[in-house]
């Protein structure tokens, strides 16, 4: 049982902790956000390979665009954005991708080039490495942990119920035939 006082104290502690964290975060957060100022479009150009031949079909090119996020606020990938609700960015990124494809670059190379220009943010999903594993695995960990907790809970309930059954002497109630007949009728009655 949590008393009112304990709740307030815990809450107060949490608020102080969050506030100090936020204050600390505020100081550092000023400088790196500058890249989003102005347009935010960064051209990704590479000289065409010698004897360049297209390595990607249009469909494979679209698959690459599906791995790139549009820098506009639409939260969609470049392909979906340019084919559904085109903004000022996705057509330009599409043009860059087309040039790279024409220049003979492979899908991985194109993605790497974009990541170099924009940072990891341009990829629709983070690399599976380092801290990102936390992101990839947390849902499974949560479901696994939840399933484990549910299992433990069920086992505890089952044990408690078994104990109770042992404790309560299972003396049957004597019931008259008439009582049983009426009980039976009530159970068989079709109307719920």
């Amino acid at each position: 049982m949590v008393t009112r006082r304990r709740f307030v104290i815990t809450l107060g502690g949490a608020v102080v902790a969050v506030a100090t964290q936020a204050a600390r975060g505020q100081q550092g957060a000023e400088t790196p956000g500058a890249t989003m100022e102005g347009d935010g479009y960064i051209p990704v150009r590479r000289p065409p390979r010698a004897g360049a031949a297209k390595r990607l079909t249009p469909l494979e090119r679209d698959a690459v665009e599906r791995m790139l996020s549009c820098p506009c606020p639409c939260t969609l990938d470049v392909f979906t954005c340019r084919t559904s609700m085109p903004c000022g960015f996705s057509p330009r990124l599409h043009a860059d991708v087309v040039k790279l494809v024409d220049g003979g670059y492979s899908a991985d190379e194109i993605l790497a080039a974009f990541e170099q220009a924009y940072g990891e943010k341009i990829l629709m999903a983070p690399h599976k490495q380092g801290f990102n594993w936390v992101g990839w695995l947390a849902p499974f960990a949560a479901v696994g942990g939840g399933a484990f907790a549910a299992g433990a809970l069920i086992r505890r309930w089952g044990r408690r119920a078994a104990e109770r059954r042992m404790a309560a002497s299972p003396v049957p109630i004597e019931a008259s035939d008439d009582e049983m007949a009426r009980l039976e009728a009530a159970i068989r009655s079709d109307d719920p």
Partner: peptide, 26 residues
């Protein structure tokens, strides 16, 4: 997992300082 995918960019930025996107592949 849906909420986590939506919030993970913020967490990642707080921990690592670099921005990431979490989209359909995730």
């Amino acid at each position: 997992s849906v909420l986590w995918g939506t919030l993970f960019p913020i967490i990642s930025e707080a921990v690592r300082g670099s921005k990431i996107t979490v989209g359909p592949p995730f």
